[in-house]
Design a protein around this nucleic acid. Structure first.
Lengths: 166, 166
DNA sequence: TTCATTCAGGACCAAGCTAGTCCTGTTTTG
DNA sequence: CAAAACAGGACTAGCTTGGTCCTGAATGAA
């Protein structure tokens, strides 16, 4: 389906929200500001931390901040962090799975070209390119206010977020 | 995961096998030549027929042949036929699912750019580009011989074929 | 020192999708 | 008429994803 996982979509939303100011923000605060469920935000941020895209500060008054500016984070990095290395098929170079019938496979190595093309496309677009105009950004505010905001659901409660590329 | 479905991988194998000579080949014969299980080949070919990528001839002495030459079939067409329209996220233009929180979504419309880039990449590569050198192609032969051939499994019997793009 | 806050790192479960198989037609040839 | 071959479904098992929750560790404030 060439689909992107929902978590990747969430990750972009969260990272963009984290913004470029490098101020510490808690997972709860980001959840409130974006409308993404808090446990999901926490999950995403933990993955992002492991991947080195964000830095975390534990303890009271802790939180998260970007490790690099949005313009220095290509979309490919986010996808790789969430979903693992980008490889359309198991036959692609660097893929962990080894095709056990490579001797017969009629398209052996041919997906590499397709893969490289996609990788180039994803590496050339940064999160800064996906950032909305500044006026649309909801300012950081106390939880008591933010928690009353409308929620963000990528594709609605009952509709699959399965993604397509036509 | 940006993964491609296994069926898409099979479809490319089958279509390339169908080749450019426009001779009728039965699903059983293709299965034998490629090592892909016959029911799966039949399933793929039925989908390809519906999509207009191959033509079918029913009845005894029937079979399948390409509707266009391999060079006239972009990879994007195969993926679309198997997986539906290519769209990374539900937010992407022309996607059937409508985001019910588009007013709040911080990256509304931003995936379009990523999507277009991928679509361009996939549209620029044809099946002819994925065709192996002629010497690697197994010639058409009687079932009795072909059925003894080694099978082709994209990623082995027990290993996930999940595809990645890094 | 003690406690509240916040992240770290898993385990766990339900739901949906994919792959693969099979069965019953229908069409065409000989 | 019988055999060959495609058409079009239904069906099932397994995996993956998503989402939640729990326990523990680190930090800072009172």
């Amino acid at each position: 389906m060439l689909k992107l996982s929902k978590l990747t979509d969430y990750a972009v939303v969260v990272l963009v929200r984290l913004g470029d100011d490098f101020a510490l923000q808690t997972s709860g605060g980001i959840a409130a500001a974006t409308g993404v469920p808090e446990p999901t935000v926490a999950k995403v941020l933990k993955i992002m931390t492991t991947a080195g895209l964000v830095c975390s500060q534990r303890g009271a008054r802790g939180g998260y901040r970007l490790a690099r500016s949005l313009s220095a984070i290509p979309v490919a990095d986010v996808i790789t962090a969430i979903d693992g290395p980008i490889a359309l098929t198991a036959c692609v170079e660097h893929s962990p799975a080894i095709c056990d019938s490579s001797a017969l496979c009629p398209v052996k190595g041919r997906w590499d070209r397709v893969n490289s093309a996609i990788l180039d496309a994803l590496s050339g677009i940064s999160l800064a390119d996906m950032r909305p105009p500044a006026r649309d950004v909801v300012p950081v505010q106390p939880l008591s206010e933010a928690s009353a905001m409308q929620s963000y659901h990528p594709a609605g409660a009952s509709v699959s977020t399965t993604a397509f590329v036509e």
